[in-house]
C-alpha cells in the first residue's frame, strides 16, 4: 500500500495538522494557566471564521485589488474577533468561578459553548445556514511529480509556523511570557511576586482566542464553507491533539496536532471506517502508554 504514504497524503496531513495546531495551542495555553478545559474554544474558532467573513466584505472595496493587504486585514480581524470573544467569555463566565471547584467551570464552559452556537444559529443576521467563504487569494496549484501543491497548503503551513514561532518567543523572551509561566507554575507564589494574575489569565485567553481566530480564517480559506456549528469537530480533534502532546505544553500541542493531522489522513486513505475512529484510538493508546501525553514532564502528585 505505497499509495497511502504518498507525498500528496503527507501534504494533506500537514495542512490539516496546521489548523489543528493553531486551535490546540489555545487549549493548551488556557489549560496550562487555569487548568480548565475550555470547551468553548472550538466556538472561538468559529467566531474567527465569521469575523474574517464579515471583514472581507467590509475591506474588499477599500483595498480593491491588493489581495495581500486584504488578506492581512482579514487575518487581523479574525484574530481580534477570536481574542474578543475569549476575553468576554473569561470575564463573564470563568472569572467568577475561578476559586470554585474546577468542574463547575467545566460545566459553565459547556454552557458557554452551547450558548454561542445556538445564539449564532438563532440570530437572523447569521442563521444556521452554510455560507460560502469568499476566495481571499486566488487559488493556484503547482504540480510536483505526482503531487499537487496548492498555494493554500503553503499559506496554511506558513501562517501556522509564523504564529507558533511568535508564540514561543512571546512565552520565552518577554516579561509577559515570564509572568504567564510563573502563573502556570504557582498562582500564589506569582501573586506574592506582584504579578496581577487576573490580567495574565485574561491575556492568555486572548492569545488563545486570537490563535483560534486565525485558524478560523485558514479553515475558511481552505474549506470554504462556514456555519455556526463548524467549531465542534475541529475543537474536539484539536483538544485531543493537545492532550496527546501533553496538555499545558506548547511544543506538545504542535506535535500532537501534526501527528493527528497526518494519522487521520493516512488512516482515512487506508480505510474510511478506520479513519473515523483513528483520532480516538491513537489518543487512548498514547495515554495508556504515556498517561501525561508525549512531551509532558514527569511531575509527582502534590500531597
Amino acid at each position: 500500500m505505497g499509495s497511502i504514504f504518498s507525498l500528496q497524503q503527507i501534504l494533506n496531513g500537514l495542512q490539516l495538522g496546521s489548523i489543528y495546531a493553531l486551535i490546540a495551542l489555545g487549549y493548551t495555553l488556557v489549560y496550562g494557566i487555569v487548568r480548565l478545559i475550555n470547551f468553548a474554544h472550538g466556538d472561538f474558532f468559529m467566531i474567527g471564521a465569521y469575523a474574517a467573513y464579515g471583514s472581507f466584505y467590509m475591506f474588499n472595496a477599500l483595498v480593491a485589488g491588493r489581495s495581500g493587504t486584504l488578506a492581512f486585514l482579514v487575518l487581523l480581524a479574525a484574530m481580534i474577533g477570536g481574542a474578543s470573544i475569549a476575553y468576554l467569555t473569561n470575564k463573564f463566565a470563568y472569572k467568577p468561578l475561578r476559586y470554585k471547584p474546577k468542574l463547575s467551570s467545566l460545566i459553565t464552559a459547556i454552557g458557554v459553548s452551547m450558548f454561542i452556537e445556538y445564539f449564532f444559529s438563532a440570530l437572523p443576521a447569521i442563521g444556521p445556514s452554510y455560507r460560502s467563504f469568499p476566495d481571499i487569494l486566488v487559488r493556484k496549484e503547482i504540480r510536483l511529480g505526482n503531487a499537487v501543491i496548492s498555494n493554500l497548503v503553503i499559506i496554511d503551513l506558513a501562517v501556522a509556523a509564523i504564529l507558533m514561532v511568535g508564540l514561543t518567543l512571546l512565552v520565552r523572551k518577554t516579561t509577559l511570557g515570564k509572568a504567564m509561566r510563573a502563573v502556570s507554575q504557582d498562582k500564589d507564589a506569582a501573586r506574592l511576586m506582584g504579578i496581577d494574575i487576573e490580567k495574565v489569565i485574561s491575556f492568555t485567553f486572548m492569545v488563545g482566542g486570537a490563535f483560534a481566530g486565525a485558524a478560523g480564517l485558514l479553515a475558511g480559506m481552505t474549506y470554504p464553507r462556514i456555519f455556526p456549528y463548524m467549531g465542534i469537530l475541529p475543537g474536539l480533534k484539536a483538544f485531543i491533539a493537545a492532550v496527546l502532546g501533553g496538555i499545558g505544553n506548547i511544543p506538545g500541542a504542535m506535535l500532537g496536532a501534526y501527528i493527528m493531522g497526518i494519522a487521520e489522513t493516512f488512516a482515512s486513505a487506508y480505510n474510511s471506517l478506520i479513519g473515523e475512529g483513528i483520532a480516538f484510538a491513537i489518543l487512548i493508546l498514547v495515554l495508556l502508554i504515556r498517561p501525561r501525553g508525549l512531551l509532558a514532564e514527569k511531575i509527582a502528585d502534590k500531597i
Binding site: 499509495s3 497511502i4 504518498s6 500528496q8 497524503q9 494533506n12 496531513g13 495542512q15 490539516l16 479553515a219 481552505t222 474549506y223 464553507r225 463548524m230 465542534i232 469537530l233 475541529p234 487521520e264 489522513t265 493516512f266 488512516a267 482515512s268 486513505a269 474510511s272 471506517l273 479513519g275 473515523e276
Partner: peptide, 20 residues
Amino acid sequence: FEGHPTGTTDFKAQLTKILQ
C-alpha cells in the same frame, strides 16, 4: 467506494485514494 466521517471538511485523503 469511500466513506468520510460526518462533519469533516477535509476529504483529500479519500479523494487522493479515489483518484489513484
